[in-house]
């Protein structure tokens, strides 16, 4: 399992986007997720993101992200309850604690914590989408265009990672054959066994790195100005998705500066829908952001669209 990327190539529409437009789409989602704190907005963004995750075939992996988020949500609620004094509806008046002051548990703080948990889940889902939408190769290629050296370090390390993992298994077997039992002993003994493993691993791969460097040298690496091999295509779909994402961002920032999409938690939680909600505005943003999804859907069911975008 560790010998291949988390990403899975499935030839889907969203995976065929130019990495730049895919990255912009993800970045806009992330920005909006961190900008709005209105539960309805967060729910709207979450539904698009999860739909997109489904569209790139990452729903099973998303469930794991969901589990992590639920665990972290409880921590967020506790911390907020502990530190927030602004809530009016006090459910339980606690004792005085050094550093933090009086411990009052307010309904508002719990509500805020829960909404923040929703935001966490949203952000996790956005990263989950990223994992399945963009091939690491393409990010590395993009990076190499700006910084050839760090790009090379990353791709070299990524290329070697599966080899390192399988070498670990090999060394473990070799040591077992020399009488090392990795399951026995105290924690200290176990650690020393693993340290031997790590030592062999380091020695072997550092030795190999000298030969890798030689191969790089022989292929003229560092002999002067480099050029950059580009294999990405810009298609009409990229323009469309890029435009939709950027318009969504501009719209959202405009609306947000007008006070839309913010929810007042303190001192008393406001109504879910009121003047500051801007339902129409919410729908506009959601529609713009679901544009790539609509295209994806159309692309998969309509051959005509396939050849045109």
């Amino acid at each position: 399992m560790l010998d291949r990327f988390f990403y899975r190539e499935k030839g889907l529409f969203l995976q065929s986007l130019h990495p730049l437009s895919a990255l912009v789409y993800i970045a806009v989602l992330l920005t909006l997720a961190l900008m709005f704190n209105h539960p309805l907005y967060l729910l709207g963004l979450l539904s698009i993101t999860v739909a997109a995750v489904k569209a790139v075939g990452g729903f099973d992996a998303w469930k794991a992200f969901l589990k992590i988020s639920l665990g972290a949500t409880s921590v967020i609620i506790i911390v907020n309850v502990l530190t927030v004094r602004a809530g009016q509806t006090v459910l339980w008046g606690g004792p005085h604690i050094p550093v933090f002051g009086r411990l009052d548990v307010s309904l508002e703080a719990i509500l805020f914590g829960a909404v923040m948990g929703l935001r966490l889940l949203l952000i996790m889902s956005i990263f989950c989408l990223y994992n399945f939408m963009i091939h690491p190769d393409r990010v590395l290629d993009l990076l190499s265009r700006f910084s050839s050296k760090s790009g090379l370090v990353l791709s070299l390390a990524a290329r070697m990672f599966p080899a390192v993992v399988s070498r670990i298994d090999g060394i473990r077997e070799a040591l077992t054959a020399r009488g090392v039992d990795f399951n026995a002993g105290t924690l200290k003994e176990k650690m020393s066994k693993y340290a031997v493993l790590m030592k062999i691993l380091l020695l072997t791969f550092l030795e190999d790195s000298m030969e890798t460097a030689e191969a790089m040298y022989a292929r003229a690496f560092g002999s002067g100005r480099r050029s950059c091999y580009v294999r990405e295509n810009l298609r009409p779909r990229d323009g469309a998705c890029l435009a939709a994402s950027l318009i969504a961002l501009v719209t959202a920032v405009y609306g947000w500066s007008k006070g839309l999409g913010t929810f007042g938690f303190y001192p008393q939680a406001g109504n879910l829908i009121d003047g500051r909600t801007g339902i129409g505005f919410l729908f506009a943003v959601i529609f713009l952001l679901s544009f790539p999804l609509l295209l994806s859907w159309g692309w998969h069911i309509w051959p005509f669209l396939k050849s045109k975008i």
Binding site: K149, L156, A157, A158, A163
Partner: peptide
Amino acid sequence: IAVIAVLGAV
């Protein structure tokens, strides 16, 4: 470069 990459991978 190669040494950094190897240490990163390890």
